[in-house]
Amino acid sequence: GLEHMADEEKLPPGWEKRMERSSGRVYYFNHITNASQWERPSG
């Protein structure tokens, strides 16, 4: 619901949600550090 939507907005600075086109899996990418990970970043 709306709570989940708001929660997605609160990623740490630099992080954004991305989708891997080949598999459709969602991952997280940090455009500041060029880091990427499957787990939702905390902090």
Rank of each mutant, 00 (worst) to 15 (best):
L11M: 05
Q37G: 02
S36E: 08
H31V: 15
A6E: 12
E3A: 13
I32Y: 11
L2P: 12
M19S: 07
V26L: 07
N30M: 02
G1T: 11
G43M: 14
N30R: 01
N30Y: 04
W15G: 00
R25Y: 04
N34C: 15
E39D: 09
R25D: 03
S22K: 14
M19E: 08
E8C: 15
I32E: 08
N30E: 01
L2N: 11
M5H: 11
A6F: 12
F29S: 01
L2F: 14
V26A: 07
Q37W: 02
D7N: 10
G14Y: 07
G14A: 05
E3N: 12
L2G: 13
N30G: 00
S23K: 04
G1S: 11
H4G: 12
L11V: 06
E20K: 05
S36M: 15
Q37M: 06
I32R: 07
W38G: 03
F29E: 01
W38E: 05
M19Q: 09
R21A: 15
A6M: 10
S22D: 14
H31F: 14
A35F: 09
G1N: 12
K10M: 12
E8A: 10
D7I: 10
K10P: 15
G24L: 05
R40W: 07
E39R: 06
G24E: 04
E39W: 08
R18L: 08
H31W: 14
Y27H: 02
G1M: 11
E20L: 11
P12Q: 02
R21F: 15
E20G: 05
R25Q: 05
G14L: 02
E3T: 11
E3V: 13
Y28N: 00
W15P: 01
K10L: 11
T33I: 05
G43E: 13
Y28H: 00
R21N: 15
N30W: 01
T33K: 04
E16H: 07
I32L: 10
A6W: 11
E16I: 08
L11S: 01
R21G: 14
S23Y: 04
R21L: 15
N34K: 14
R18H: 06
G1H: 13
S42K: 09
Y28I: 00
M5K: 10
R25T: 04
F29M: 02
M5R: 09
E9I: 08
P41V: 01
G24T: 03
Y27E: 02
P41Y: 03
D7G: 10
V26K: 03
S42V: 12
E20Y: 09
Y28W: 06
P12V: 01
K17M: 11
E8Q: 09
W38P: 04
S42H: 10
T33P: 00
Y27W: 06
E39P: 04
L11G: 00
S42E: 10
G43V: 12
N30T: 01
E3W: 03
N34A: 07
S22H: 14
Y28T: 00
E39I: 06
V26H: 07
S42C: 15
D7A: 09
E16S: 07
H4M: 13
T33L: 06
S36I: 15
Y28V: 00
K17W: 05
A6H: 13
Q37T: 06
R25K: 08
E3S: 11
G1R: 12
P12W: 02
E16T: 08
N30S: 05
S23F: 04
E39Y: 07
E9A: 09
S36H: 09
L11H: 01
P13T: 08
W15V: 00
R40A: 07
M5F: 12
P41H: 00
P12F: 02
M19D: 03
S42W: 09
N34E: 06
S42Q: 11
E39N: 07
T33D: 04
H4L: 13
P13W: 13
G24R: 06
F29K: 03
D7T: 10
P13N: 08
E16V: 10
M19N: 06
W38K: 04
W15H: 00
W15Q: 00
G1K: 11
E20D: 15
F29R: 03
W15M: 00
G24K: 06
D7L: 09
E9M: 08
R25G: 02
L2I: 13
P12G: 03
M19A: 06
R21W: 14
S23H: 04
G43A: 12
S22N: 14
R18K: 07
G14D: 05
K10F: 10
G24A: 04
L2Y: 14
W15I: 00
R40P: 08
R21D: 14
H4I: 14
E20F: 08
G43N: 11
S36K: 14
W38I: 05
S42I: 13
P12E: 03
W15R: 00
G1F: 12
F29W: 07
A6D: 14
G14Q: 04
W38R: 05
L2A: 12
E39K: 06
T33Q: 03
M19W: 15
E8P: 09
Q37D: 01
W38H: 05
S36V: 15
A6R: 10
P12R: 02
E9Y: 09
M5Y: 11
E20I: 13
W15K: 00
S42N: 11
I32W: 08
N34G: 15
P41W: 01
N34Y: 08
L2S: 12
R40H: 09
R18I: 06
E39A: 07
N30L: 02
S42Y: 10
E3G: 12
G14C: 09
Y28E: 00
S23I: 03
E8F: 04
I32N: 08
Q37E: 02
K17G: 02
E8N: 10
M19T: 15
A6I: 11
S22Q: 13
S22T: 14
W15E: 00
G24H: 06
G24V: 02
V26Y: 14
S36W: 15
V26M: 09
K10A: 13
E8G: 10
P13F: 14
L11E: 15
M5D: 14
S42F: 09
T33G: 02
